[in-house]
Simulated assay, not measured.
Amino acid sequence: MATQYLTPFVVPGYEPPSPDPQTGEVRTKTDDERREIIWQMKQVRMVQEGMESPVAKAAISGAMGFAIGAFFSLMGSSFTIEDPFQRQQYEGMNMKQKARVIFGDMGKGMWRQGKGFGMVGALYAGTECVIEGYRAKNDIYNSVYAGLVSGAVLARNSGPRAMAFGGLGFAAFSAAIDSYMRRDTPDED
């Protein structure tokens, strides 16, 4: 039979002993070392399960969305400083007063745009994770359905027609991005 080609199953902590590189002594693991290995494996498994939960994915996406939105706002605020129409509000101010007004406006804009990006990221990632868990599949339709729901939720204050168009637009965008991310890269061998 082909049993000689199968990978042997080894319980963690009960691996065959190997010689110590410094002394050359062959020693098996003690019961305390085995318990430590099993405890570490449980901790790793618990962290992995936590990172794959919808709450954790939504929180991470929301935080990253907040950071990206704040960064975009920061980059965009550099253009408003050089705006000739904005210069009129700074007339008669010394440098310290001008800096206080500019940095205050930057902070408000970063908070506002970061909050918006964070909300969109958390909503989409959480919805996609819940849909993936419900369908028990990992395919492109999860992102399309999540885009449809997220777009509709984001446009809920503008009426049913806007919800339909928002959902369809977000679903199309999600499908385009997900199909691009899932494509196979050509081998260059």
Rank of each mutant, 00 (worst) to 15 (best):
R100K: 04
F71Q: 12
F71K: 15
D83T: 03
S143V: 01
L154Y: 00
V153T: 10
P16T: 03
D187T: 02
M106Y: 11
K57G: 01
F79K: 09
G116Q: 08
E49G: 11
S143H: 10
K57S: 01
Y180F: 10
M75G: 15
Q89S: 13
M41C: 04
M110D: 05
M64D: 07
L168E: 14
R183N: 10
R35V: 11
V144T: 01
I68M: 15
F85S: 04
D139C: 10
G92T: 05
V47A: 09
S150N: 00
D184N: 09
R87V: 15
G121Q: 00
A67W: 06
G104M: 00
D178G: 06
Q4V: 05
T3A: 12
E188R: 09
Y180G: 15
G62F: 00
G50T: 12
W111M: 14
G167L: 09
M51H: 08
S78D: 12
S143G: 06
L123W: 05
M1R: 12
D187N: 13
Q4S: 14
Q22D: 14
L148K: 00
E25P: 03
V10S: 14
M75N: 11
Q97G: 06
W39N: 13
G169T: 12
G133F: 08
G24T: 12
M181K: 04
I38W: 07
G107L: 08
S77C: 11
A162H: 14
R27Y: 03
F72H: 10
P12L: 14
C129Q: 03
A63W: 01
T3D: 15
T30I: 00
G104Y: 06
Y5G: 11
G24D: 07
F170A: 11
R161V: 15
M93G: 11
S143E: 13
Y14R: 03
I68Q: 05
E132A: 08
S77I: 05
V130T: 12
L74T: 13
G109Q: 07
F165P: 04
L6M: 12
L74I: 04
S150T: 08
